[in-house]
Amino acid sequence: MACACEHGVKAVQLREKDLPAGPLFRLASRLRDITRHWGATLYINDRADIAMAVGADGVHCTEEGLAPDGVKHINGSLSVGASVHSIASATRAEAEGADFLLFGPVFYTQSKARYGAPQGFEALGAVVAAVGIPVYAVGGITPSGAGACMAVGASGIAGISDILGAESIVDSVNRWRHVLEEL
């Protein structure tokens, strides 16, 4: 992660569903040091308490987890992102106070296969049009697919496999940066 941040990743979301809160807190503390050093923001999945305890920028909400209004109730200064998979859940998350959305899966990806078939960049465009907050595209997005996402109004790209699964994280992040700078 230090490697990815050094080369320009702007936001990091910690997602570890199976770790107890103690180890998660220690991991989040280390990520906070790294992200702060490189000027990247840090989001913790679902756990507003861990986000507060380590001084993270915000919380990322899933559909089963703590809702955006729950996070804002606990601490109004936390930024809130929310994963959404339809226009209905996107407008709900916006109404609940989310600051931005992650919509997907746009393309096929193994890590998101359980959220259903790829939705395509047209559905992404429909969600962008339906809400007034930034929408990031997630799910199977390669540098070559990013153009279509940005063209329909996505504010950015979120990814797991293409960066963390890459043979060289540095090369992958740099390739991404060049693609996004040109768009």
Partner: peptide, 15 residues
Amino acid sequence: HVGQDDLPVSAARDV
């Protein structure tokens, strides 16, 4: 209430 695998007591207090 926090167990030994959960948030440290001091962190829970901060929150």
